[in-house]
Simulated assay, not measured.
Amino acid sequence: MSNTTAANDAKFGLSKLRRSPLTLLVHFSVMVIVVLWTLPTAGLFISSFRDKDQLALSGWWTSLTASQQNLVERTDDPSKQVKQGNNYVLSGQLLVDGKPSTISAFGFSSREPTRYLPGEVAEMNGGGTLTVEENGEYKMTSLEPFKGSRGKRIFYTAVVAPKFGLANYEEVLTAEGIGRSFINSLTVTIPATIIPILIAAYAAYALSWMKMPGRNLLIALVVGLLVVPLQMSLIPLLRLYNDIGAFFGVGAKTYLGIWLAHTGFGLPLAIYLLRNYISSLPREIIESAKVDGATDFEIFMRIVLPLSFPALASFGIFQFLWVWNDLLVATVFLGTGEEHMVLTARLRELLGSRGGNWEILTASAFVSIAVPLAVFFALQRYLVRGLLSGSVK
């Protein structure tokens, strides 16, 4: 008996050794996927705190190292000039963030900001010379007195230490209308998440436990609607809504329209997901309730609905994310007016017509995902349970 046990233990240990390379490969693959998904998000997060000038010149992976940057600074006020022999001299120190830095090139024209190397003598227009040393000390000389109320501009390239701050977030959060757009997004997202869940839950129970003619055909129709592109149905849906709204005297740009649109787009997946879950519930529970005289509505409200919370939560996460991050449907059904502009549309307006404000883009990305992240972490424990339940009988 002991020999048989020892042999079985040896076989089990050998099988574990044989599976270990595959296990390591699986763990390595998961790690690679996690890194590939995490790196872009980490880069976006780091970039959201960087100085906008440095962000435009270098990637986030260089954010912790000093970099060369083209800068411009004015000399001291001409009133501080001194006369040395026949020349008038104006001297001083070029500072980067209030500290001396290493200068690698300089110039006196914006067209050629890096024409001269430190220590070279630059012949300025209208006479006079300019010299900038490597440590940032400059000296301007001229036979004529320097005039004007402001100093001359000096363009130079210097080594700049990495700079971080909350200026990008302040610009986004203090933008005009951002608070109103945040409320508009909540006004759109919360009902557009709850309404399809309520409708889909009733439909899923009916398709799972109620006998009706054509039930299988309805299930096939729901599955077929999953592959219909949203973009194909936008224009026909909008025309139908406008016609109905004109008939009942309801304006086109209302929240009701976008609630119905998101409900229609989300129902196929909601019904499919909830139907798979509800149909996997033990048949004995449903039959016992019917034997006790419970109606379908009572069975649904008191038994099925509480047991289906994981599936409801998992779909709620997806629907909330889709609606919150939506821009296309909101633009079509609500327009771009100040009164109904959602958060994604507002952040798009902040980027400008050319989309060159990278600092706004990075900060606004994390401002917009703050609420979805909170919803996801609050309900994530139900996500896997809701998606997998019903997939295996």
Results as ranks from 00 to 15, higher is better:
Ala204Asp: 05
Ala204Glu: 03
Ala204Met: 02
Ala204Phe: 04
Ala204Ser: 12
Tyr205Glu: 12
Tyr205Trp: 14
Tyr205Pro: 08
Ala206Gln: 05
Ala206Ile: 13
Ala206Arg: 01
Ala206Pro: 00
Ala206Lys: 01
Ala206Glu: 00
Leu207Ile: 07
Leu207Val: 06
Leu207Met: 07
Leu207Arg: 04
Leu207Tyr: 04
Leu207Gly: 03
Ser208Trp: 11
Ser208Asp: 09
Ser208Glu: 09
Trp209Ile: 01
Trp209Leu: 07
Trp209Arg: 12
Met210Ala: 09
Met210Gln: 13
Met210Asn: 02
Met210Ser: 07
Lys211Pro: 00
Lys211Leu: 02
Met212Phe: 15
Met212Trp: 10
Met212His: 07
Met212Thr: 10
Pro213Cys: 00
Pro213Trp: 03
Gly214Phe: 09
Gly214Arg: 01
Gly214His: 03
Gly214Asp: 05
Gly214Ile: 06
Gly214Cys: 04
Asn216Pro: 00
Asn216Val: 01
Asn216Ser: 12
Leu217Lys: 09
Leu217Val: 14
Leu217His: 05
Leu218Phe: 15
Leu218Tyr: 12
Leu218Val: 15
Ile219Ser: 07
Leu221Asn: 09
Leu221Thr: 15
Leu221Phe: 15
Val222Met: 12
Val222Gln: 06
Val222Gly: 04
Val222Cys: 08
Val223Ala: 15
Val223Phe: 15
Gly224Gln: 01
Gly224His: 02
Gly224Ile: 08
Leu225Ile: 02
Leu225Met: 15
Leu225Trp: 07
Leu226Lys: 09
Leu226Gln: 15
Leu226Trp: 08
Leu226Arg: 11
Leu226Tyr: 09
Leu226Phe: 09
Val227Gly: 03
Val227Trp: 05
Val227Phe: 13
Val227Glu: 01
Val227Ser: 13
Val228Trp: 12
Val228Pro: 10
Pro229Trp: 12
Leu230Gln: 13
Leu230Asn: 06
Leu230Cys: 05
Gln231Ala: 10
Gln231Thr: 11
Met232Asn: 06
Met232Ile: 11
Met232Ser: 12
Met232Ala: 13
Met232Phe: 11
Ser233Asp: 00
Ser233Ala: 08
Ser233Cys: 02
Leu234Met: 15
Leu234Thr: 08
Ile235Val: 15
Ile235Gln: 02
Ile235Lys: 03
Pro236Lys: 05
Pro236Leu: 05
Pro236Gln: 08
